[in-house]
Design a binder for these strands. Structure first.
Lengths: 341, 341
DNA sequence: TTGAAAGCGCTAACAT
DNA sequence: ATGTTAGCGCTTTCAA
């Protein structure tokens, strides 16, 4: 079945074992070109019994084709991104393309490094989170020589294609729902945002809409690191102590929102009567909390699917060449923590 | 700065632009061999201004060296695995190696496919979750021609190296703590386990230890799919209705344990007096719940680090050739839901 | 239906 | 310190 060789096997080994030319062996192994059933069987038997694994490096070099799609995201720990990846896989599994994931930890320099590294494998496509990149990264993307899809966000200028939601609009929509429900003393909690552009845009959309209604955020707090659930709890306690008359808390993500929710429930606060609550993302993980937190889903899985579909379609298609922008619409979920107007 | 070329740039382009031979350009770009400061500068300037990105495919083929480490895990959605990946990255970032992740969805056939795919890129090492693989997968691993580290579990026969904990022992340890604390009517909830070997081993270690004390599981329930938090809540409600005199609930993971905890707290149950609770994993995500669930951490990050270190060390080292098995010891965290004896 | 020759873009090994 | 030569293992192209 196998012999413990040190040198990896090559086409030549299969060729010799089967008495068929390398070229024909190659054809069989790739199901390309016409090969008689007889030789096909011989070759497959030989390949299997030797335990031959083709060398894609050589194959890629010779064919100038790599079936890899570079996927670059900020972090795998964030819940959000595995869902995007799932969407990408949904679509790519039906093709010969394979996603390869790299993460940037929200650091532009690391993004640059990861991007460079991945491009040096000459992928068939790039899917990258966000529209904000260093100049060097943008240059690389522009030169990549393959389709590039920027995802999650549409508020900005894509290099090539783009699939996402408008976070500004999402912030605005949430503000509108909150105002309509009659809340007026609003607190905000979120991550420190210098590098989380999407959170920043939501915040901007949110505050701008409040401002138009003549309302300012009454209190706010930012965190970084640590367990989000615990942070949400702590920040909420601190903020309610500092500003006891708040009637609404808007969290930049569901995890800290859940922490706040648990804290307030224990404190016996009437939700959503005395205080309303909302998060962002629609994290399914949290189904099962005592109350369903109001939230807005970010269409994560669909974003992944659409992005992958764009890459897949462009493989065969001629150079399409218009910047394709797909804006998805997040839906507001009132849950049990935001009064309906 | 860049010119919108269609053909990707090659070393030759840089060579011509800088008036330096391809070979020397290559040396500069890899910091290999002695190159005068003058030419080094010229080359770097040329490369940068052209926006040259080296072609690793060609490089890998020529040098027979690939700086990729294949990492194969069941799922990215599981929380557990991103932490293992973080451990791997911790270590690999200090080297020239790069992790490439593939996921199997707990399906042996998919594992086989992913493994084949990754091996065809001739990686410098393989890190793969679990000790149970199809025959074909084991054969591929044995033939891989690079270090292979099986992780998470040590209860079995590794192909090569192995880093993990004994899940049987973990189950036993938890059973001992529960018995010592005086609990006797014990319920178990977990995933359906045909393919989750580690959960199965914990369950075996657990029940076996109870059996030695003359105790049998009083009730049990298995689930699959859905939000774990919600499932934990539902299953707990169902089980407590069915078997109201249970005094302990052992969950096969922290998420369902958290769902159960939330349900019981709402129901006004005295924890850990009337009923004790424990999960498994030590998911940091859950810090911030009303009570800290008793759990046992699975040393996930350290497993990643140790595995990566083994791969990294074997790069330069001669063929070491003894199956290296690293067994880590999970620590029991009593949290607030398990009485101390 | 099958085979032979010529590279893909880079690097190891050997000159110089 | 720099250049030359010969592949790496496959696939493309063309011939048989």
């Amino acid at each position: 079945m196998k012999s413990p060789t040190k040198r990896p096997l090559t086409l030549r080994d299969v060729s010799e074992a089967s008495g068929v030319s390398e070229m024909t062996v190659s054809r069989v192994l790739r199901n390309k070109g016409d090969v008689s059933e007889a030789t096909r069987a011989k070759v497959q038997a030989a390949a299997k019994s030797l335990g031959y694994v083709p060398n894609k490096i050589a194959g890629a070099l010779a064919s100038q084709r790599v079936n890899l799609v570079a996927v670059i995201i900020p972090s795998l720990g964030n819940m959000v991104f595995p869902e995007v990846l799932a969407g990408i896989s949904d679509v790519l599994e039906g093709t010969s393309l394979q996603p390869v994931v790299g993460s940037t930890d929200y650091l532009p320099e690391k993004e640059e490094k990861v991007l460079f590294e991945m491009l040096s494998w000459r992928p068939s496509g790039v899917i990258i989170a966000g529209l904000e990149h260093s100049d060097a990264s943008r240059a690389m993307l522009a030169q990549a020589g393959c389709p590039v899809v920027e995802i999650m966000d549409v508020d900005g200028e894509p290099v090539d294609a783009c699939v996402g939601i408008s976070h500004r609009r999402a912030g605005r929509k949430m503000a509108e729902a909150i105002l309509e429900a009659g809340y007026r003393k609003i607190g905000f909690m979120g991550t420190k945002m210098p590098l989380d552009h999407r959170a920043r845009k939501r915040f901007e959309g949110f505050t701008r809409t409040l401002a138009k209604a003549g309302i300012e955020i009454s209190d706010q707090e930012f965190y970084s690191g640590g367990s989000a659930l615990a942070k949400g709890r702590e920040m909420t306690e601190a903020m309610m102590t500092r500003t006891p008359d708040l009637d609404f808390l808007y969290y930049s993500n569901d995890m800290i929102g859940a922490g706040g929710l648990l804290y307030l429930l224990e404190a016996g606060v009437d939700i959503p009567g005395q205080i309303g609550l909302a998060g962002f993302n629609g994290v399914e993980l949290l189904d099962g909390l005592p109350r369903r937190l109001a939230t807005m889903d970010a269409c994560r899985r669909e974003i992944g699917q659409r992005a992958a579909r764009i890459i897949a379609e462009r493989q065969d298609a001629p150079e399409s060449e218009d910047k394709e922008v797909v804006e998805l619409s997040p839906t507001l979920d009132y849950g049990d923590t935001l009064r309906r107007s």
